[in-house]
Simulated scan of single mutants.
Amino acid sequence: MNIAIIGLGKMGLAIKKVALERNHKVIAIDPIAPGADFKEISNKSLDGIDVCIDFTTAATVLENAKKVAALKKNLVVGTTGWYDKMDEMKSAANGIGFLWSGNFSIGMNVFFHAVRETAKVMNNLPEYDAAVLEVHHNQKKDSPGGSAQIIGKIILESMPRKKKIFADRFADRKPNPDELHVASMRCGSVPGTHTVLFDSPVDTIELNHIARGREGFAFGAVLAAEFLKGKKGFFSIDDLMKEVIGKAK
């Protein structure tokens, strides 16, 4: 398969390594990165490409999607921070295969499943409160990150007594019972740690996912590209996971 990586930063380099190991042909598009094959998305740079993978910035990803869709190429998006423009993205991706996720780690998506099932049980146990903590390296720009937002959404859907996410600092009040506190920390080189707490007066249940590097995210992104080849429609990582889980049964 022929893959175009849009954005040759640390994640782009990790994706390139995994894709080559899986015997795909790869080109990279980046306006400034050394080693990129092309500086912009164009008919020339995407000639013969089956699927593009975008890991750029929230400020550029929507425009990138429009350019890719205009050239009738499928697109996997791992860039975060654009979810308030979901309707615009769906419109831009109309007519191509599009798959997005805030986290392409297969292990993290198993973690999402565990959080969902645990939150359903905890909704019937009012003694237990819930909270989310995410920790990332100090170069990450969005806060809360995409995965933390997904976790928060999962808990709200599975634990209806929590009505809304609160991600700011409590300056002069305590949290309301219907608020889910999602806290963020940025430190050093941490690839990504996500913790979900269910706490009661008698005990605490803690679910953790700790990423050891970018390789897990890169592997999932390449799997997503393989899944998306030849497909049309708007997909999320959940669609890929259904296929992965189906093969495991």
Rank of each mutant, 00 (worst) to 15 (best):
Met1Ala: 15
Asn2Glu: 14
Ile3Gln: 03
Ile6Pro: 05
Leu8Gln: 15
Lys10Gln: 14
Met11Lys: 06
Met11Arg: 09
Ala14Leu: 03
Arg22Gln: 08
Asn23Tyr: 07
Lys25Ile: 01
Lys25Glu: 02
Val26Thr: 10
Val26Glu: 07
Ile27Cys: 15
Ala28Thr: 15
Asp30Val: 09
Pro31Asp: 00
Pro34Asn: 04
Pro34Val: 09
Gly35Met: 11
Phe38Gln: 10
Lys44Met: 05
Ser45Ala: 11
Asp47Gly: 04
Gly48Leu: 01
Ile49Tyr: 03
Asp50Asn: 00
Val51Cys: 04
Val51Leu: 10
Asn64Ser: 15
Ala65Tyr: 03
Lys66Asp: 02
Lys67Leu: 07
Ala69Tyr: 07
Leu71Ser: 02
Lys72Val: 00
Lys72Tyr: 06
Asn74Phe: 00
Leu75Lys: 04
Val77Met: 09
Thr80Lys: 14
Trp82Phe: 14
Asp84Asn: 09
Ile96Lys: 01
Phe98Leu: 06
Ser101Ala: 11
Ser101Arg: 13
Gly102Trp: 02
Asn103Gln: 11
Asn103Phe: 07
Ser105Thr: 11
Ile106Arg: 11
Phe111Trp: 12
Phe112Ala: 04
His113Cys: 01
Ala114His: 15
Val115Ile: 14
Val115Cys: 08
Val121Gly: 05
Asn124Tyr: 14
Asn124Ala: 05
Asn124Met: 03
Leu125Trp: 09
Pro126Ile: 05
Glu127Tyr: 06
Asp129Trp: 02
Ala130Gln: 05
Ala131Leu: 02
Val132Glu: 04
Val132Trp: 12
Leu133Gly: 01
Val135Thr: 14
Lys140Ile: 03
Lys140Asp: 07
Lys141Tyr: 03
Lys141Arg: 08
Asp142Trp: 13
Ser143Arg: 10
Ser143Pro: 04
Ser147Arg: 08
Ser147Glu: 04
Ala148Ile: 07
Lys153Trp: 00
Ile154Asp: 02
Leu156Asp: 00
Leu156Trp: 11
Glu157Gln: 11
Pro160Trp: 07
Ile165His: 12
Ala167Val: 12
Asp172Val: 05
Lys174Asn: 05
Lys174Gly: 09
Pro175Cys: 11
Asp178Cys: 14
Met185Asp: 03
Met185Gln: 06
Gly188Cys: 10
Ser189Lys: 13
Ser189Leu: 09
Phe198Leu: 00
Phe198Ser: 03
Pro201Trp: 06
Ile205Gly: 07
Leu207Asn: 07
Leu207Cys: 05
Asn208Phe: 13
His209Asn: 00
His209Val: 10
Ala211Gly: 01
Gly213Ile: 01
Gly213Pro: 10
Arg214Ala: 13
Glu215Lys: 15
Glu215Met: 09
Glu215His: 13
Phe217Ser: 13
Phe219Asp: 07
Gly220Arg: 13
Ala221Lys: 11
Val222Leu: 00
Leu223Phe: 01
Leu223Gln: 07
Lys229Tyr: 05
Gly230Met: 11
Lys231Cys: 08
Phe234Ser: 06
Phe235Glu: 02
Leu240Ala: 02
Met241Glu: 03
Lys242Leu: 02
Ile245Ser: 04
Ile245Tyr: 12
Gly246Lys: 12
Gly246Met: 09
Gly246Leu: 08
